[in-house]
Each structure stands twice: as structure tokens, then as C-alpha cells.
Design a protein around this nucleic acid. Sequence first.
DNA 1: GAGCTAAATCGAATATCGTCGATGATAGAT
DNA 2: ATCTATCATCGACGATATTCGATTTAGCTC
Lengths: 123, 123
Amino acid sequence: MNVSRDDASTWASWFRALGDPTRVLILNLLATSGRAMSVAEIVDAVDVGQSTVSHHLKILGDVGFVLVHREGTTSWWRMNEECLDCFPTAAELVMGRLPTAAPWDESGRGSTLSKKTSARSRR
Amino acid sequence: MNVSRDDASTWASWFRALGDPTRVLILNLLATSGRAMSVAEIVDAVDVGQSTVSHHLKILGDVGFVLVHREGTTSWWRMNEECLDCFPTAAELVMGRLPTAAPWDESGRGSTLSKKTSARSRR
DNA sequence: GAGCTAAATCGAATATCGTCGATGATAGAT
DNA sequence: ATCTATCATCGACGATATTCGATTTAGCTC
């Protein structure tokens, strides 16, 4: 029934990824464009340097918000729709009703190995 | 159609409030207890100093997650259920479909004055 | 191979954040 | 009026985060 500090840290890190304006702009760009975009395209749209964009993409990729497909020297980044669909709400977070591994993350990037802890469907 | 960096900053600040383990623990405590709690009670439950708890409560209060009622020398903090109900989802955030003032905030704490920008009801 | 392009990584500067201990403010009790 | 309890605020510190410019890595073309 009680939430451990470790669990709280994991969940907080998911929301922290959404806690930076540049990352919000990047996600908005990818989500509204509805397609994969190169780093250069993103740099053009968001007003920060290339290395900064790469850095934020890595953070978003670690959490599982975005997916990347390398093709030649260019990286194609796109939204992970599955993450968008089942990302926890604030209510679920504060009620402590969350798995400790990201359910949208197929590759087990999360700390603990998941494999479909709970197949949520909302909306 | 485009999201400004200012809007992105505002929205990011809301999610950043959920991006710290101690704040998640505090919110979970208040939400699951279902009642108002004093600072001392919260300090007992969350393993950090009193000044730290006060600091986090201020951050949560600024965003509108928690409400306070002073009575004598003690402050009674409780969840703002309205905020919990209509806090934006990740999908709404990245699609840029959010008001620039917090809809759960009655007192107009948010940057821009709101007055019911959109009466959402979810769940 | 030489040159070019795209993006990741590195190193450093700066800013922000989380935490603590100490102090200050306020209300109640003796 | 003095003491006590409760909490907010202040000042400082270390740890993180954000950003930039420079460098490196990798792929493509000639």
C-alpha cells in the first residue's frame, strides 16, 4: 500500500522528462507533424543548438517517448504513440497505482524488466 | 497551431512539479490519506527535514496541486481534487491542446488570468 | 583516399534544484 | 511577559540540468 522512495524516483523521472520547455517543443513538433524527422529539421524548428537537440532526444528516447531509426548518416526520430497512449495520469501517479517499469517500453529500457506488467487501455 | 516557447515553459513547469521523488511521496501521502495533514505529520512520513517539506509544499501549492488552511500555528495541507481530476495528460501536452492558465486553479495563481478556459471532464 | 554531411559525444560554463541547519514569525499556554 | 510549539523563510552547499562550441564518429560521394 505504501509507495517506496525508489518507486517514487522512477515515476518522477518519467514526468521530469516532460518538465523542460525545449523537450515539450520537440515532442509537440514530432506529434503534430505525424512523421519521423531528422535532427537538422528539429534544430530548425526549435531554437537551440544541434548538440542540445541531440541531448534532449536522448533523454526522451531513454524514457521511451520517442523512437529512432538510423538511415545512413541521418537519424529519423518519431513519437512513440504507444507511450503517448498509456503514459500515466497525475491521478494514477499520486495514487501510487503505477508499474515500476514503463509499460510502453518494449525493449525493457526501464530499470526492472517488464514484459507487459499491465496492458492498460485508456481513452 | 504552433506552440510558443512561453506556453511550453508554463506547461513544462506543471509537469516538473511531479518530477521529484519527495514531492511524489508527499502527494501520495495526502491523496491516499484522504484528509488534511500538518507539516509535522508529513515530515514524519517522508524522510526529509521540515524545511525541505515546507519548500516542496510551497512548490506544490504554487502549481495548485495542494491547498492549505492555516489554523493557529499549524498549517493543514490537503490534495486539490480538482487539480487531480483535470491535470493534463501527456498526450494533451504534446499535442499543444492546453490552456496557458491552470484550469484547476480558482484563485488565478497561473500566469495569465483564466476563468474557465475550457471545462474539461475526463474519466 | 579526400572531402563532405549528419549527428553523437565531449568539455566547460552557467543556472537551477534539493537539502540542510539556523533563524524568524506567529499563535497559544503558563 | 515568557516560554513553547509549529511552520515559513533565509543562507549555504553540493548535485543536476541546460546549453554551447568543438571534436569525433560514421556514412556517402567523388
